[in-house]
Write a protein that binds this DNA or RNA. Sequence first.
DNA 1: AAATGTATGTTGGAAATCCAACAAAAAACC
DNA 2: GGTTTTTTGTTGGATTTCCAACATACATTT
Lengths: 223, 223
Amino acid sequence: MIAQYMEKLQSCPLFAGVASDELNAVLGCLQARVIRVKRGQIVFQEGEPADQVGIVLSGWVQIVRDDYFGNRSIIGRAEPGQLFGEAFACAGTQMQVSVLAAEDGEIMLANCRKVLTLCKNSCSFHNTIIYNLLQIVARKNLMLSRKLEILSQRSTREKLMQYLLEEAGSAGSSEFTIPYDRQGLADFLGVERSALSAEISKMRAAQLIECRKNWFKLLPQEK
Amino acid sequence: MIAQYMEKLQSCPLFAGVASDELNAVLGCLQARVIRVKRGQIVFQEGEPADQVGIVLSGWVQIVRDDYFGNRSIIGRAEPGQLFGEAFACAGTQMQVSVLAAEDGEIMLANCRKVLTLCKNSCSFHNTIIYNLLQIVARKNLMLSRKLEILSQRSTREKLMQYLLEEAGSAGSSEFTIPYDRQGLADFLGVERSALSAEISKMRAAQLIECRKNWFKLLPQEK
DNA sequence: AAATGTATGTTGGAAATCCAACAAAAAACC
DNA sequence: GGTTTTTTGTTGGATTTCCAACATACATTT
C-alpha cells in the first residue's frame, strides 16, 4: 500500500542511505502510515504530545501558531518531501505549533519516539535513521543560527553586509550570485525592499560592493 | 585521571541518565580527553573538520567568527558544564566558527562521530548519549526558532509583544515574571533600552499591559 | 540618614526606516 | 518590434528608532 510513495520517500533526507528493500521494514519500525488530508484540516495540534513527525507526500502544509489571545500567525510551510514537527519530537516537548493542510494532499506520519527509545533490535537502518534525523536537526540549527546572526544586526547595511560576507565565505570568493531577487532578499533580511535598494545604491557609490542583479562582488577596504 | 571531573560531567546534559559507573566506559567510547587551555588559546579552528565536541570543565570559551575580510565577531560563549561545537559535528560540516579560551581552563574533547557511526557495540549508554545529543540539538533548535520569531518582527512594540505573548503562553497565564531586567530584555529583543522603556510606557498607557519591574500582565483587548 | 550606585523612565534632536508613489530598466509576451 | 508585465531604483514625507543626556526611583552601604 505504501509502494506508490517509495520514490518520494527516497528523496526525503530522513531516509537517505536506506536501501529500497529496507525501506518497508523501516516504515514498519516507525509505524508509518499515510493519511489523506483536506484543505484546512489540522494535522498536528498545538499542545498535543509530539511523538510523530510528518512528511509531506503531496499538497503542502502551513505551520502556524496561535498566541495567547488566539491570534494566528503563519510561521512556516513544508512542501512535498519535507519533514515537519521533528524538532518537537526530538526535543521531547509538546507541539508548540499547529500544522494544517493548505491543500488537499497526503501526509505520512511516523512515530519518531519509537526509533529513539523503544525499538530494541539495533537494525542497520535504525542507526541510519537516527543519524539522518540528527543531521537534519543540526543542519536546521546552523541555518537558524545563520539567520539569527543576520537579523541581530541593527541596520539595513549591517544586515546586508553580514549576509553578503557569509555568502562570500561559503562561495570562497569575493564574487558570487545569490538565490534571491530584491524582494526576496529584503524579506530574508527583514527590511523594506525600497530601503534595501537604496542601501545597495549607497554601498555601490561608497565602493563597498559591485553588483548586477543577483551577482555581487565585495570590494576590499583599506582602513 | 578523569575521576576528578565526574561531578561536573554528570551535570552535563550530554551525560544525563548515564550511571556513574558507566560514565568511564562512555568516555572511553567517545575517546574523551581533557586538555588544559590558556587564555586566548584556540580550541577549534574555523574550517577544520568538526568531529569533536567540547565540554567546558572550568574557565569559559568564546565562540567567534571571522568574516571574509578577517574581521572577528563574537557570536556566543560557553560556560562550565556547557557543550560547544555539537551542531557542526552532528551536521557533518566543517567548523564554521572558531572557539577560543577566554580564560585559562580545562576542556573535555569527545569524538562525537564515533558515537554516531563507528561504535558497533550497541551498549545501553550508547543509545542514551545519542538520545541526549538529539535532544540537546533539537532544544537549541526550538530556542533559536523562538528568538527568530521575535527578531523577525519589525517594530519594538511587535517584538516586545511577541516575546510577552510567548511568555504568557509558556506560563499558561496572563501574568508572569520574566528573567531579564530592562537592559537584558532590550538586548534580547535587539532594540535600544531607552526605546524599550518608552514603548513599555506607551503600552501601559494604551491599556495593553500592566507591569512592575519584571512582572508583566497582558490585558485582554476587545476589538 | 546620608551617600553612593544601579536600574528605569523621559526627553529632544539626529538618523534611519517605512511607506506609497512614481520612474526606469529588464524580462516576458504577442 | 512593440506592448505588457515584472523587477529594480528613486524620491519625499511620515514615522520610528537611535542616541545621549538627564531625572527619578530603588537598593545598598556606611
